[in-house]
Design a protein around this nucleic acid. Structure first.
Lengths: 223, 223
DNA sequence: CTAACCGGGATTGAATCCAATCACAAGCAA
DNA sequence: TTGCTTGTGATTGGATTCAATCCCGGTTAG
């Protein structure tokens, strides 16, 4: 009876916990690309030693969120416009596939929830809620299929480009782009009709248009 | 003059070095899927302590080559047939894209080298050389574009499925499949004509056919 | 005979300690 | 002033040490 299963014995998860919090801090923008990450800081902040901190940094490096240089330090990764475009091109190829896997698995209420998200997003004016709803909308399109490596890859691509999506939205959202919402509606409609082919086409076009829009605003990647 | 730049100051690279050797041991089949990996063993084998060993394991876990369970241990990752098929479907979508990036960058001698590989592969009878040449042929199709994350993703997919490609070849190569060589020739020909669209189509079909062939032989994934 | 229950050995996880490297500023020479 | 050198403090890399957990026997009660 000494197991204490209640507090889910936190031994053996320190690295993962630190990685999760640092990942969150990067995704929320609390740590911007290029920011230096000091091992001692992180260790202190989490009440741990530097050993699990270094494991966490290795994990985030593998995810591409952190860049490590031997004997020198760790920084939040940055992307050039070319790299970001490459990621969008990859997304354009694989997200439709993931969507195809999901379409036949989604229930009516799943799709209703999707529509609610799309509507809420259309009405949102705050940048952060817009970003949060957009992310949730798209990831919800892929939530029906249980853990798959394709899902992990897509999530990772979203994470690595998150900062630039935020920067873009902050700078150019005022030039309001209605077609995003239109495409989201088309996507929901195709999913509801169980038309995977059409859903794939709409999603690919949506990502492609977003990429072209981004390429038209290289200022997002300055400094 | 104490710098000793000759022996490229090995400090700060122990984890990476161990990871590279373990990765190689997994890819060559020296460590099969399911095999237990003990930290102390690896540490002893490389004359290092367990700290860099654990970093190496984290890296390989992120690559999907190793599976870690907290407080329990590390094993060489295995794949189910379904997971392997998923990876082939992903490859079918993204390798043509990577090929498209490369086609316009390849020189005449690059393409000649490709043809030499295809011919050598056709004449090979040993399983290991067949595998090595097949891998080299395909990866050479992507070698012109410098380091890109798409290239990393593709390489990773090849690595994770390497063992099952070997198992398949060992079991069923006798039922000799000529269309592989035919498709390789078609691919070289399309690249030489600088026809990226056709190269994409041929490659996607090639990967797709390989996947279907694999799915027809689930015995590869037993045990 | 079966199944639950210890307990020791093996193994992993994390903290501490020491070594190696780097960034940077002060000093020096041209 | 400008550029190079040098030494010192800050920071990371790796080894050692200690703690927590798990695996797997044997043991014992039912």
């Amino acid at each position: 009876m000494k197991g204490m299963t209640l507090e889910l014995s936190t031994h053996g998860a320190a690295g993962a916990r630190i990685a999760a919090e640092l990942r969150e801090a990067i995704l929320t923008g609390e740590h911007a690309p290029g920011a230096r990450i000091r091992q001692e800081d992180l260790a202190g902040r989490h009440g741990a030693s530097r050993v699990p901190v270094r494991e966490a940094l290795r994990m985030l490096e593998a995810e591409g969120l952190v860049t490590l240089v031997a004997n020198t330090g760790a920084w939040v990764s940055s992307l050039s416009l070319a790299e970001c475009e490459e990621m969008y091109q990859i997304r354009e190829r694989i997200e439709p596939l993931l969507l195809r896997f999901n379409v036949p698995l989604m229930s009516g209420s799943d799709i209703d929830a999707l529509e609610v998200l799309a509507d809420a997003m259309e009405r949102s004016d705050d940048v952060e809620t817009f970003l949060r709803l957009d992310r949730e909308f798209h990831l919800s399109c892929y939530a029906a299929v249980e853990t798959s490596m394709l899902g992990d890859m897509v999530l990772n691509l979203w994470n690595r480009t998150q900062h630039y999506r935020r920067a873009f939205t902050r700078m150019f959202r005022s030039e309001g782009d209605r077609s995003v919402h239109h495409e989201h509606q088309l996507l929901v409609s195709a999913i509801r009709r169980d038309d995977a082919d059409e859903a794939e086409r709409v999603l690919a076009g949506h990502i492609r248009r977003t990429r072209l829009e981004l390429a038209r605003h290289p200022a997002v990647f300055e400094n």
